[in-house]
């Protein structure tokens, strides 16, 4: 079902995009390009498809502007009046060359670097002035560096317990509750890495891929309103990156998490998610919904990119 052949319309030059900022056409049924044999977590997803478009957005960015090095010759307009609405359960891939504003956009949403102007809403709530740690109650994050998402000197169960309390007040109860260990073990078991038997090992003993898988698990241990993935497979070898992407798909699909994923890999951006947006010079220049995305190839994407932006494309963007 998932790999149903996509019928390409005849003729070469199909207009695949829709204007930037347009509403997503509807919530697609399929979250990820399926690893062989995986079934969607829930068939009902298809039924609710039409309702999704009318739902209030889970994330809304309004007229975000962010400049760096203000007042110097190096002043950069990193995000330039950007508007974005993401529906609940939508899985959005974000691409763009270096300096296009992807990470800055993530920073505006996560609170690490709040915008100069514009507003950010999560589930209708204005979080623009919330500090980063307060937004954590709504947002789960995975970073590019596999070492960034975990504490090396602390044990696996301690790390998971930290994540288990995301967005909650931390008082003088036990840091790792007795009953929680079963929850952690069950969650770890799905990684199939044997980590469920190593709860008291320091995370520093794990490999980069293991740590990134653990981080992903931790980011979703308490269901986030929004999952932000910032090139989270870029620093991994291809095989490990594949495993982490499979895990990402599984978790996002099962929990139907609203997800933003930055990637430099065009194929990944085409294969995964419900929607693909391309940033250039701080603006969204392309915005494909699921249907348009199905027909997309890397070459189409490049052509679209060149047509819209007349810009240069880094080798990294092409080769991923």
């Amino acid at each position: 079902m998932l790999e149903a052949p996509v019928k390409l319309p005849e003729g070469e030059d199909v207009d695949l995009g829709r204007p930037a900022g347009a509403e997503p056409a509807g919530r697609p049924a399929v979250a990820c390009a399926p690893p062989a044999g995986r079934k969607p977590a829930n068939g009902e997803d298809v039924v609710s498809e039409d309702a999704a478009a009318d739902e209030a957005p889970m994330l809304e960015a309004r007229q975000l502007v962010k400049r760096f090095n203000l007042g110097t010759v190096n002043e950069v307009l990193a995000v330039d009046g950007l508007d974005l609405k993401v529906a609940p359960g939508e899985y959005v891939c974000i691409i763009g060359s270096n300096g296009a504003g992807k990470s800055t956009l993530m920073g505006c949403i996560s609170g690490t670097s709040p915008p100069d102007s514009g507003r950010t809403f999560i589930e209708g709530q204005d979080v623009t002035v919330w500090p980063e740690h307060r937004r954590a109650s709504l947002i789960g994050r995975v970073f590019q560096d596999p070492l960034s998402g975990t504490c090396a000197s602390m044990t696996i169960e301690e790390n998971m317990a930290l994540a288990f309390r995301r967005g909650r007040r931390r008082g003088f109860r036990r840091g790792v509750g007795r009953a929680e260990r079963d929850i952690f073990r069950a969650a770890l078991a799905r990684l199939d890495l044997g980590l469920e038997d190593r709860l008291t090992d320091p995370v520093g003993l794990l490999s980069g891929g293991q740590r990134q898988s653990l981080t992903l698990l931790m980011a979703t241990l308490v269901r986030p309103k929004l999952l932000l993935l910032d090139e989270h497979t870029a620093a991994l070898d291809p095989k490990t990156a594949g495993l982490v992407m499979d895990l990402t798909c599984g978790l996002v699909e099962e929990e139907r998490l609203t997800t933003l994923m930055i990637t430099h890999n065009m194929q990944q951006a085409i294969s995964f998610g419900h929607r693909l947006i391309m940033l250039h010079q701080g603006r969204i220049i392309l915005d494909f919904d699921q249907q348009a995305k199905r027909r997309l190839t890397v070459r189409d994407l490049l052509r679209q990119f060149q047509g819209s932006a007349m810009g240069q494309i880094s080798d990294r963007l092409v080769l991923g």
Partner: peptide, 23 residues
Amino acid sequence: RTEFGQALLATGDNPKMITSLGV
């Protein structure tokens, strides 16, 4: 060993991570 103490340890180990977890 308390939640607060674990947050202290995490602050020293990886402030970026523990901030993203709400501390």
